[in-house]
């Protein structure tokens, strides 16, 4: 059984975003593996190391320019066997899914994080499944493989749903799939540069969405302190200024 993890290359989640000329300015951002994808990779590595299943290979794929290579190299250092980089900017979900489809068709389980930490589109996984004609399961919080039986948990309102699926399948995974992302070991870092990192040309695909504008959230209003003895002032402010009563 072969697993493919689709990796997003995203700004570190602590990056302070500024808009310059109406677009997010990411020039000083640190780029990292999308956190959900990193957890997916961690789970896949655990499965690869466990001899009670048929997982034999874990590969990674990303859509990005050469600047995304340090992130994909980290995935190889963590333990992925082989990497694919489709040499294009991931401009929208459909375009990205179409690029990933060229490598994903050979795998039994394809995993994407539930969303990318940058634009939070949450669409690539489902689109990829549709393009490949594979089954798709969303919001997976646990993945176990016994022999070649794939068992999943999904978070649903007020509880969990347990299911088994046939392969090939595309999973979008969320928190719970693994606890902490794995830190690459020295040996892995050393081996990463010898592992294959295949660069593929992008296929023709259109963008189905267009970003019209970005807007920053309104800054938090300042806090007005009211003397506890002055309840009428509080009521007045709530009624006439905040207009909530």
């Amino acid at each position: 059984m072969k697993i493919l993890i689709c990796l997003g290359n995203v700004p570190d989640t602590t990056t302070k975003i500024k808009l310059v000329d109406g677009k997010p300015d990411l020039t000083n951002a640190q780029w990292v593996i999308n956190p959900w994808d990193e957890l997916a990779l961690t789970r896949a590595m655990q499965l690869l190391e466990d001899s009670n299943n048929s997982v034999a290979k874990v590969d990674v794929a990303t859509v990005g320019k050469i600047s995304s290579e340090p992130t994909i190299r980290k995935a190889l250092a963590i333990g992925a066997d082989e990497a694919f980089r489709i040499d294009a900017e991931p401009t929208d979900a459909y375009f990205t899914a179409a690029q990933l489809a060229q490598v994903a068709s050979n795998y039994d389980i394809i995993i994407t994080g539930i969303e990318n930490a940058d634009y939070n589109g949450s669409s690539v996984g489902a689109m990829l499944a549709e393009l490949l004609g594979f089954a798709s399961v969303s919001a997976v919080s646990a993945l176990n493989i016994e022999g070649s039986v794939v068992k999943l948990n999904r978070e649903i309102d007020g509880g969990k749903e347990m299911l088994t699926v046939d392969t090939p399948v595309v999973l979008t995974v969320q928190k719970g799939i693994a606890i902490d992302p794995r830190i690459p070991a020295m040996r892995g870092i050393m081996m990463a540069k010898k592992k294959p990192l295949n660069v593929l040309a992008p296929v023709e695909a259109e963008n189905l969405t267009e970003i019209i504008a970005f807007e920053m959230p309104a800054p938090k209003g300042s806090c007005k302190m009211v003397d506890p003895a002055n309840v009428s002032q509080l009521v007045d402010l709530l009624r006439n200024e905040a207009k909530v009563i």
């Binding site: 290579e69 340090p70 190299r73 980290k74 250092a77 690459p184 870092i189 990463a192 540069k193």
Partner: peptide, 14 residues
């Protein structure tokens, strides 16, 4: 180098 950065980041993460 890329490896040196990866080692620094791994130590930082730990």
């Amino acid at each position: 180098t890329e490896e040196q950065i990866m080692i620094r980041d791994a130590a930082r993460e730990y």
